[in-house]
């Protein structure tokens, strides 16, 4: 499949995926409303915690608020869920393998379609509401904005690789996805710094946790955006994880391909 055909296939798949959400009535918007309320609650808690405090862990209250706002706006890209697990569980993986566009492109383009809807109906309103919530949505600097773009792209690559490794794990373990799903969600939220910035954890835990691949998912791009982290170092770490996980994922995929098909076909 040449690049042009692949792009066209991905665009069409994304459009179909977005259309599947939009083809329904507005009830799905409630999920986004819930996300907005969660954001408002988190912002208020940070204000209370930081009251009468200056900087904590190298972050001031303004940075933490911007960090939390952006974590809310980019909740989907900062914790990639391709739908591979469900596809395996439902036994639909084989039909994906028959598509000429490839498995990764197929899942990622579907995911992008869902993100597009989330961006239009949730992320954009959150961004526009930022002044009302009393949060400065802008990046720390122009350079931070530029580095952030790269960092976000790397976070997505790491996220997709981790999602595929997770898929391989459930195929190897032949276990129920919902058993692992709760664990994965809780662990990823904690270790990625999507809810509590790693820098604010006690006993210097954050310093250790940032080296984990989960830190590359949310903490790194959000730190770069708010100017709370060393951008070149964080980007290098993300690049390392992206490369390592892609290679590892490829190897695991080859190893478990047969098992995946038998489990998910």
């Amino acid at each position: 499949m040449n690049a042009r055909a692949l792009t066209a296939a991905c665009r069409r798949t994304s459009a179909l995926s977005a259309g599947a959400m939009l083809g329904e009535n507005p009830l799905f918007l409630l999920t986004y409303l819930l996300r907005l309320l969660r954001l408002a609650a988190l912002l208020a808690i940070w204000r209370a915690v930081f009251a009468a405090r200056g900087q904590v862990g190298g972050m001031d209250v303004e940075q933490v608020l911007t960090y939390t706002l952006l974590a809310g706006i980019l909740a989907e890209p900062l914790n990639c869920r391709t739908g591979l697990d469900r596809s395996l569980w439902e036994g639909a993986i084989v039909t994906r393998m028959l598509q000429p566009m490839g498995l990764v492109a197929s899942f990622v383009s579907e995911m992008a379609g869902r993100w597009a809807v989330g961006f239009a109906f949730c992320s954009l309103p959150m961004l526009l509401l930022a002044p009302l919530l009393g949060v400065d949505p802008w990046p720390a600097s122009a350079a931070a904005a530029a580095w952030f773009g790269l960092s976000l792209a790397l976070a997505i690559v790491v996220g997709v690789a981790l999602d595929f490794l997770y898929g391989a794990a459930i195929a190897v373990l032949k276990t129920d996805i919902w058993m692992l799903d709760g664990m994965r969600h809780a662990v990823a939220l904690l270790l990625s710094g999507a809810v509590v910035p790693l820098a604010l954890l006690p006993w210097g835990l954050g310093r250790w946790m940032q080296w984990l691949p989960f830190g590359a998912l949310a903490s790194a791009p959000l730190q770069i955006y708010t100017g709370a982290g060393d951008a070149p170092m964080l980007l290098a770490l993300q690049a390392f994880w992206a490369l390592a996980l892609c290679l590892f994922g490829r190897w695991v995929w080859r190893l478990t391909r047969e098992r995946m098909v038998s489990y998910g076909g």
Binding site: G19, L22, G23, E24, N25, P26
Partner: peptide, 13 residues
């Protein structure tokens, strides 16, 4: 539902 992008709002509302 209509497949045309311009009909998104009509599909929803």
């Amino acid at each position: 539902p209509s497949e045309r992008p311009r009909d998104v709002l009509r599909n929803l509302l």
